[in-house]
């Protein structure tokens, strides 16, 4: 489904991604973890072209992404993305947030788009809030709207870039629950997250990154029980201490 091969990227003299290679099969859930500044956010953003790459190539379905490829409309349509800070459109209602890309990008009729939006908002448990504006919702509710917004384009892959990092602790689970049910329905997902419980229970595989490199790729159970690299061991020791 997705193959990342020999991808590198630098900001000036600082190399954020060093020869990254990874494969994600259809229906697979992959968690990318690692210390902050390890390049995981950058890597996930290269998958839908929000970050350009300097070398290597990325295949998403039939779409080939290489340095200097600029026409990415088709890619964006098949890859949904959820941001750390939600990035809902504050001047549009919840319903409009979920319909706007459907009507403008996919040219769906308004009625069809709204029906789809209502169904998705029901699925993330927000039927009661469709007429509200983003600022009237809690962070957890906003992030669920953002997930519905991304799903509205019927993506084949969903990218989550630290979807719970900006949330108050009591709201983390409502978002993780939505992500878990999405995974159970067979969505292909790549998630950058610090939620190790989610990684252990839901992910098929874990990519561990450090210093711009993919240091280790392993099944979730194996990664948490017996990490192969010293760096992963040190990371897990720090993060699972409490």
């Amino acid at each position: 489904m997705i193959s990342i091969s020999h991808v590198s990227k630098s900001y000036g003299s600082f190399q954020v991604l060093k020869d990254c290679n990874a494969e994600v099969a259809r229906g697979e859930v992959v968690v990318i973890c690692g210390p902050s500044g390890s390049g995981k956010s950058t890597l996930i953003k290269t998958v839908n072209g929000l970050e350009s790459i300097d070398a290597g190539e990325i295949k998403v379905g039939d779409f080939l992404l290489a340095p200097r490829v600029t026409h990415m409309a088709a890619l964006r349509r098949s890859v949904g993305m959820v941001f750390q800070s939600f990035e809902l459109f504050p001047h549009l209602s919840v319903l409009s947030n979920v319909t706007i890309a459907q009507t403008k990008v996919l040219k769906r009729p308004k009625a069809v788009a709204e029906e789809k939006a209502r169904a998705l908002l029901a699925r993330v448990g927000l039927s009661a809030h469709i007429a509200k504006y983003p600022a009237q919702l809690s962070g957890g509710q906003q992030q669920r709207v953002a997930i519905a917004r991304a799903l509205a384009l019927d993506p084949e892959v969903m990218l989550f870039d630290e979807p719970t990092s900006a949330l108050d602790p009591e709201m983390v689970n409502e978002v993780l629950d939505v992500m878990t049910s999405l995974a159970k329905q067979g969505m292909t997902m790549i998630c950058v997250t610090h939620e190790m419980g989610f990684a252990r229970n839901v992910a098929n595989r874990v990519l561990f990154m450090d210093g711009g490199e993919i240091v280790e790729t392993a099944g979730a159970a194996k990664f948490f029980n017996a990490p192969a690299s010293e760096r992963a061991k040190a990371f897990l020791a720090r993060i699972l201490k409490h």
Partner: peptide, 15 residues
Amino acid sequence: ISTGQYAACEALGLS
């Protein structure tokens, strides 16, 4: 406007 809004527009495929 935060740069995230620009990224969100791109991610949704809006021209």
